[in-house]
């Protein structure tokens, strides 16, 4: 694994809110093209850590490099090279599908030509021809999530950050969603995903498990199961998370 290209590298990355240490000296690496699962119970500090990585929260101390750029000095460059989809649905409901694609293409500086090609390809792929001019509000949740993901990678980012992307979605759509994640990874986009569905953790190449602001374990799902002598990721997770002092 070590000969692989590193796209996310952190060293003792820490975020304090007063006396409360939300993320405590997090150190890890993520390699190009892998699907990295960032696991943890509610309140474990996943979202805080992720916010530091995507440049909307300033670390208290520690070091992090995203796509080769420094999180303190080069946030603008980081923003150009990443995509982000949050746990809250993040398209504009009162804009049409086409308008949403246009808007986000424009935000990431795609030309009119590029946007048009991307738009057609995207509508083809998701089979949304009949709905392309309808408001996003009229789509079922599963479709919205798939559309949001497609739009989040419309500018071909080096890394896509997904914050609990499949919350509230049915199992079939969840499966389809993961097919899209695999496809993105196959195209060289590194996927950084937080989740608390343990079956989804199994789909990841490598996972880290965060407990009380600290990364307790980091390895491939199989590696973790061997190490903790467990049948499933769920067992591993429960074993580690049981020691948590913080709840929601």
């Amino acid at each position: 694994m070590t000969q692989k290209e590193i796209v996310i590298k952190t060293n003792k990355l820490t975020k304090k809110f007063g006396d409360f240490i939300a993320a405590n000296e997090i150190t890890f690496e993520v390699y190009k093209g892998e699907i990295f699962g960032f696991l943890g119970a509610n309140g474990a500090g996943k979202t805080t850590a992720m916010k530091m990585l995507i440049g909307i929260s300033k670390p208290s101390y520690g070091y992090a490099q995203i796509a080769g750029y420094d999180v303190y000095k080069e946030t603008e460059l980081i923003k150009k090279n990443i995509g982000y989809m949050s746990q809250k649905f993040s398209l504009y409901e009162d804009l049409t599908i086409k308008e949403n694609i246009h808007l986000f293409g424009g935000i990431y500086g795609l030309s009119e030509e590029q946007i048009k090609t991307k738009r057609e390809a995207l509508i083809d792929k998701l089979d949304l021809h009949s709905q392309a001019d309808k408001l996003v509000a009229s789509l079922p949740l599963g479709w919205k999530q798939k559309l949001a993901f497609s739009i989040a990678i419309v500018h071909k980012p080096k890394i896509i950050f997904l914050d609990e992307p499949t919350g509230g979605v049915d199992p079939i759509t969840r499966r389809q969603f993961w097919d899209m994640i695999y496809e993105a990874a196959a195209n060289g986009i590194t996927v950084f995903v937080t989740t608390h569905y343990m079956d989804e953790a199994e789909y990841c190449n490598r996972v880290s498990i965060m407990v009380d602001g600290v990364i307790q374990a980091i390895d491939s799902p199989d590696g973790l199961k061997r190490k903790y002598n467990a049948q499933s990721m769920e067992e591993v997770f429960l074993m580690l998370a049981r020691g948590a002092k913080r709840g929601e």
Binding site: I56, I82, Y84, S86, Q87, K88, F89, S90, L91, G109
Partner: peptide
């Protein structure tokens, strides 16, 4: 709605 977060993460 959470769209502000998306905008803040974007280069805009």
């Amino acid at each position: 709605l959470g769209t502000m977060e998306i905008l803040l993460v974007s280069p805009i």
